[in-house]
Amino acid sequence: MTADVLALASDHGALELKALLKTHAESLGLTVVDLGTHGTESVDYPDVADAMAAALKDGTASRGVLLCGTGIGISIAANRHPFIRAALVHDAYGARLCREHNDANVLVLGGRTTGPEIAKQCLELFLSTPFEGGRHQRRVDKMNKTP
């Protein structure tokens, strides 16, 4: 598993933003694994979230970005997986804190609710911000426990 590999996936509601973020991530020197979708035909976001979970679990990528129309549905679907910490963010502050405090491994954005420049800024912060650890580690450890 390498930190230079990013998995990227969306449903049909965020194709444009996914394409923009793929290009941006590649311009930052990352290898992007595009898990789909690749067309405008309706797909179910739980299936997209499952594909992301599989890519992270098997080591295809170390982090991921998920997108749907609002980001809400796909973040709920992704967080069903015990090793996923998917954070729906709307701005740079959230993108930074989801890494610093929550050790998020999946950034979630809404294709219909997030502008392109904000999305690029969120991606950059998500990729460059380290986990702070400390008092936050015990909280992440609690989230990592399987019920």
Rank of each mutant, 00 (worst) to 15 (best):
M1L: 12
M1F: 03
T2L: 11
T2F: 03
A3T: 08
D4S: 13
V5K: 10
V5C: 13
S10Q: 02
L15G: 01
L15K: 02
L15N: 06
K18N: 05
K18L: 04
A19D: 01
L20C: 14
T23R: 12
T23H: 14
H24G: 04
E26N: 04
S27V: 07
S27Q: 15
L30Q: 00
V32M: 13
V32D: 04
V32S: 04
V33Q: 12
V33W: 11
V33S: 14
L35Y: 05
G36R: 02
T37E: 06
G39Y: 08
S42E: 12
D44S: 11
Y45H: 08
D47M: 05
V48R: 02
V48N: 01
A49F: 02
D50K: 13
A51T: 11
A53F: 02
L56R: 02
L56A: 07
L56Q: 05
K57W: 08
D58A: 05
D58L: 06
A61W: 01
A61D: 05
S62V: 08
V65N: 00
V65Q: 07
L66W: 02
C68Y: 03
G69H: 08
T70W: 07
T70H: 07
G71F: 02
G71P: 05
I72T: 12
I74E: 03
S75V: 07
I76K: 13
N79C: 09
R80A: 09
R80T: 14
H81I: 10
F83P: 12
I84M: 13
A86Q: 06
L88T: 00
L88R: 02
H90T: 10
A92S: 14
A92M: 07
R96Q: 15
C98N: 03
C98E: 00
E100A: 12
N102D: 14
N102I: 04
V106I: 14
V108P: 03
G110Y: 01
G110D: 04
G111N: 04
G111E: 06
G111L: 01
R112M: 15
T113K: 04
T114P: 02
T114A: 05
P116T: 09
P116D: 10
P116H: 07
E117T: 06
E117R: 08
I118N: 05
K120S: 08
Q121F: 00
E124R: 13
E124H: 11
L125F: 04
L127T: 03
L127G: 05
S128E: 11
S128W: 09
P130E: 13
E132Q: 15
E132G: 14
G133M: 08
H136R: 06
R138I: 12
R139W: 12
D141M: 10
M143E: 12
N144L: 14
P147D: 13
